[in-house]
Design a protein around this nucleic acid. Structure first.
Length: 151
DNA sequence: GCCAACGTTGGC
DNA sequence: GCCAACGTTGGC
């Protein structure tokens, strides 16, 4: 299995934006409740680079960069009955959901919109752009990562 | 294990 | 707000 070192994570800016991350310096990337996305979160290693994407935004697009500060640990929100993210099927002994800690690196001077990504031929294979990709955590090749930063 | 019903995501 | 594309749930 190839070692993946670049990722893209989605967040809704009205829930947690790149500016929130810049203010907090780092955060537990909690709240992911999709198994495939979870598996990617668990695969993240310290030092991996992460593109931050704003979904449900106007316009949607990539807005910044982070780096993995700590590998995934159990997502505490799954144990909290008062949290909307509470999962009654999870237990301390058998946690279902995990989150890494992601540190702010930079906010892009100019966001790269979804439209611009689609317009870039070199990014045609980016998972984000493939049909109906709703996955909130996506592996990105180094080539694509660099291409996006150059946009 | 199948699949219909339902819920969610996220662009538009 | 609409709706296509998925994911999940639960009856059988």
């Amino acid at each position: 299995m190839p070692s993946v070192e670049h990722w893209l994570v989605k967040t809704e800016p009205n829930v947690y934006s790149i500016d929130d991350l810049a203010r907090d310096r780092s955060t537990d990337w909690s709240g992911v409740r999709n198994y495939q996305a979870r598996n990617f979160l668990k695969a993240m290693a310290v030092g991996d680079q992460v593109l931050i994407y704003h979904s449900n935004a106007e316009p949607p697009g990539i807005v910044g960069v982070g780096v993995v500060l700590k590998e995934a640990t159990p997502d505490r929100t799954q144990f909290d009955p008062k949290s909307e993210l509470f999962d009654p099927k999870a237990s301390q002994a058998a946690p279902r959901w995990f989150c890494p800690e992601i540190k702010f690196v930079q906010k892009l001077k100019k966001q790269v919109s979804l439209g611009e990504l689609r317009g870039c031929k070199a990014l045609a294979e980016l998972v984000l752009l493939q049909r109906g990709s709703r996955l909130s955590v996506i592996p990105v090749s180094e080539k694509h990562f660099q291409t996006i930063l150059e946009l």
